[in-house]
Amino acid sequence: MKMLLMVEFPHEPFNAFVRSGKVGEIMNRILDTIKPEAAYFTEQDGMRGGIFLIDVVDPSEIPGYAEPFFLNFQANCKFRVVMNPQDLQNAGLEELGKAWA
């Protein structure tokens, strides 16, 4: 199942890793581990943020995606299920509309 993993990095310890030159090494290790289909870095609510498209086959995999961010950056992680246009087309919206109208 495709999910967006949205990560908010608190200023500390992220700033300390930037100052020490270790942030790239840590981030690369995490990305090599979680293997996102896409990765974007942005601002979220005044903090550094990341948005990662991941494929979660089993719910038991979720800690493996979140813990590297929790343990290294004390980050907040949010997971959202997403659909591509084909998934939406296969959702049966017409039938649902008839059933619930």
Rank of each mutant, 00 (worst) to 15 (best):
I51V: 15
A66N: 03
I30P: 00
F9E: 00
G21F: 09
N76M: 12
D55I: 05
A16F: 04
E43W: 08
P68I: 00
D58G: 03
R80F: 15
P36N: 08
M83T: 07
G64A: 05
Q74G: 10
K2R: 15
Q44D: 01
N15W: 09
L93E: 09
F79T: 07
D32A: 06
V23A: 12
E61A: 10
F9Y: 12
F17Q: 12
G92D: 10
E12P: 03
E37S: 11
A38Q: 12
M3T: 06
E95K: 15
M47Y: 09
P10K: 04
P59E: 09
F52A: 02
A38I: 02
L71T: 02
P36W: 01
N90R: 14
M3Y: 14
L31V: 07
Q74E: 09
I54T: 11
S60L: 14
A91C: 06
P63V: 00
F79S: 07
F70A: 08
I30H: 00
L5I: 01
M3L: 13
N84F: 08
I62N: 03
P68F: 05
I26H: 00
M3C: 14
L71Y: 02
E94M: 13
L96N: 08
Y40V: 00
G92K: 10
C77H: 04
Q89Y: 10
M3S: 12
I54E: 09
M6N: 05
H11F: 13
W100T: 11
A75H: 01
P10Y: 04
A101R: 13
A16R: 10
M83Y: 15
F73I: 01
G97A: 12
F14G: 01
L93R: 12
T33M: 07
W100G: 00
L53A: 03
C77W: 04
L5K: 04
A91Y: 07
M83H: 14
P13C: 06
G50N: 11
I51M: 15
L53F: 04
E8D: 01
G24I: 03
I54C: 13
F79E: 06
V56I: 15
